[in-house]
Design a protein around this nucleic acid. Structure first.
Lengths: 221, 221
DNA sequence: TCCCGAGCTTGAGCCGGATCAATCCCGGCT
DNA sequence: AGCCGGGATTGATCCGGCTCAAGCTCGGGA
């Protein structure tokens, strides 16, 4: 399952994990192959993760298989922190992913000792909450076109407005994030393309270029 | 706007606010009339609130008026904490509500000083996040009947399984919480009543009795 | 006591997104 | 170069929840 590519603990030099537990804390680096489960809903949390490269989806399932993806995590993002003794969702690598791992117990202890990283931890959880709240607005009240547009703008922002956006996730992943079906996502993208707001870039359908960000922002109510 | 009913600072004896900032912290008690806005989305956060009695809805609006209620807050619940310098949503009293207020700056300072309440603050934000995550699953993937059932079971639990549940919120509020219309909520309740899983209690439509909680739990996928 | 208005229920018809079903496209393999 | 398979697009039809509309219920006030 896990592919350990660096067993020797290393010092954290920058990034959130370092901020959380302070310098001098150590972590390991792991690699997860495309599609691999990183942890499962209900499992006992052992680590907190920061992505070095790759992409991760976190999701919940209903008993009959319906899936809701909470969030996508990209390079630099942290995920997997749990306050209670249980993972509230499953995490999977969307593509080959490298991540730094730090023991959850270290984080909790740092908080207990009034460590400097406490503020960062609160900030981290609060940002997740803010994201979840705006996603509830999307899921409860936006149309399919608004949802897909919002998704594109979110990814555009998180990828720092690249000329060509390379999406690591499939149409099905996008659909399960937006509370739609993959066909509806595909249709919405086609509409935006036909309206000239975006271009499918060349060969593959996961590379696309936002041509008119202002117009997209207007669609996203 | 605010109706101050107790200007003299009082000591906190129990509850979350006390835990947050430690004993010796003071707070005021305010009363909000039915329908009154407690704070608005985008405003600068000044207080953190704990409900003594009553009920509060927190929500976001789209420009055209579509509304998504994030959460209902009942007696004993805390709400309104912000890490950043802005309120992410609006809060309104659903019915006449009494609340304890504590200055946000006190909380932040307590965290800065490594106060004992820090752990409670993290727990508070994390619980909100957990609620938001399961609500995303509801909004993204559940049917109308499942949503209404989940709502009833949530309220039943939070009101400690009363014989007769008295809902403070309207059908429209429930609908805006569940991402439905008020008609659909009403129809779902009628179905559950016709199936014998709940009873409308006598005179008013906001009093209801859950007759078969197990059957309801089965419906909520 | 009666009336009024807000909230709720119920009905009829419609529509946006789901479902079912072909292709199509591209990457990877031989 | 040709083949194969998974992902994406597009089309046709369906249906769950929305919209529009009428009528009911209950609480409050004159």
């Amino acid at each position: 399952m896990l592919v350990r590519i660096n067993t020797a603990p290393r010092m954290s030099i920058d990034g959130h994990l370092a901020a959380l537990a302070g310098e001098g804390m150590c972590y390991s680096e792991f690699r997860y192959r495309r599609g691999l489960e990183i942890f499962g809903e209900g499992e006992e949390p052992e680590y907190v993760y920061q992505i070095v490269s790759g992409a991760v989806r976190t999701y919940k399932l209903l008993p009959d298989g319906r899936r809701q993806i909470n969030a996508f995590h990209l390079a630099g993002d942290m995920f997997g922190f749990e306050n209670e003794a249980i993972h509230r969702f499953t995490a999977e690598a969307i593509v080959e992913t490298h991540a730094h791992l730090m023991r959850r117990s270290s984080i909790l202890e740092a908080v207990r000792n009034g460590g400097a990283g406490t503020k960062d931890l609160i900030k981290f959880v609060t940002q997740n909450l803010a994201h979840a709240e705006s996603h509830m607005l999307l899921l409860g009240r936006k149309t399919s076109l608004e949802r897909v547009t919002a998704f594109l703008l979110e990814m555009d922002e998180r990828l720092h407005h690249p000329d060509v956006m390379i999406l690591p996730m499939s149409r099905r992943d996008i659909a399960d994030y937006l509370g739609l079906t993959l066909e509806t996502v595909s249709r919405a993208l086609s509409i935006l393309r036909d309206e000239g707001l975006l271009r499918f870039d060349g060969n593959t359908q996961r590379r696309l270029e936002l041509v008119d960000r202002d117009a997209l922002a207007k669609i996203d109510a």
